[in-house]
Design a protein around this nucleic acid. Structure first.
Lengths: 201, 201
DNA sequence: GTGGTATGTTAACACCGTCAACACAGTATT
DNA sequence: AATACTGTGTTGACGGTGTTAACATACCAC
């Protein structure tokens, strides 16, 4: 029965994981240096060997929360299986936005943490990131000529703002809510109407 | 030289005002019961005669922050002076959204406080409120037949989500930033494209 | 082996939210 | 007018927090 060794092994990740646990129910404000240290079975000030301050710690938790969100967006997009490339691209965009909002509804604590100090620019450019994911999806549409030419550069901003804003508004509502689902559909069609090239078919 | 009387007079509003001062620079996290009490020249626990908890106190500050925002939106909308009713209504909508985003840029602390625990529903239905303001503006457009019929009920949600989301994304950026201005114009035109009835003129 | 470095520990400080008990002032009741 | 009551402010205390400084332990390189 090995006694716990003096050195933890991977305290950094352990603190972040327990931080995700705490933030899941209580949001970023529930992240506490001392509590995370206790959860990791370590003294109250040990985290300061891995993070400069509480703020840096929650920033690391926020980073991983964003990665969680990006993963869900990615799997939702990959589940789209349609033959027509145009239809497929639009559906992938909707799946992207839908996963975003549903994440905010199902995990409001994580969502609030992810964009707590809202510096959208990812600190780790190699890790999956919601913004670049959305941007890539819109590039697919743009290359198919589906995006209105005047909005090509701003499409990501428009779509992101709509989806992010709806998430913030609905955050805390129960996921099964009918009005939430209706609002989601409204915003998704609104984004489509805003972005699509005006072709008469 | 009258000594400070035993009773403050209007501690409730004094605490909220100092709370607005604190939140302006530090956001909702900067609001502290003890600090506000000290700022009001009163003992540390006196605020508890007026607010049940810190959370109730920041909720009151958030309420007034929302009223500040609503006031700016209102003055921006009232500054629109155009003859053509359709043009006027659309411009009022843009002014509404522009004031919203510019408030978030100019006063990120207040903005973060205003939507801290994002229950959009105003506790005081008689006070000016950003949501109803936007809703009324869209009603003007709808009565002119400018809003696409299929989106009449969801127009407020779409516009609100776009503007609110952009504000959250840009919050913290310096107000004069060119990219912020560009993003704002993009989103405003995107909202207009999403909402307007498709008439060919 | 020895020194250096990374990591973990203890003790302490200042601050915070909150409660209980008490003190003062104005207001209503008799 | 005297009294009781209610609203408001005060003091003191408790447990919790972030953070620093000084010290201890384990690993790693030479």
């Amino acid at each position: 029965m090995s006694e716990r060794p003096y050195h933890h092994g991977d305290l950094t990740q352990a603190l972040i994981s327990h931080g995700l646990d705490a933030a899941r129910t209580g949001g970023p404000a529930a992240i506490s240096v001392r509590e995370l240290a206790k959860a990791a079975g370590v003294s109250a000030t040990a985290p300061y060997r891995h993070f400069d301050s509480l703020e840096h710690l929650v920033a690391a938790v926020a980073q991983q929360a964003r990665e969680l969100l990006a993963t869900r967006m990615l799997t939702a997009m990959d589940a789209v299986d349609l033959a027509d490339p145009r239809e497929r691209a639009w559906t992938r965009l909707s799946a992207c936005g839908r996963a975003y909002v549903e994440f905010a509804l199902a995990e409001p604590g994580w969502f609030a943490t992810a964009f707590h100090s809202c510096q959208v620019a990812p600190t780790r450019p190699d890790s999956p990131d919601p913004w670049t994911l959305l941007s890539q999806t819109l590039d697919e549409l743009d290359q198919l000529g589906e995006v209105h030419p005047a909005l090509a550069d701003s499409a990501t901003t428009i779509a992101w703002a709509a989806v992010h804003g709806l998430s913030g508004i609905l955050a805390g509502t129960q996921p099964g809510s009918l009005e939430a689902e209706a609002a989601l559909r409204d915003v998704l069609t609104g984004v489509q109407r805003a972005l699509r090239a005006e072709r008469r078919d």
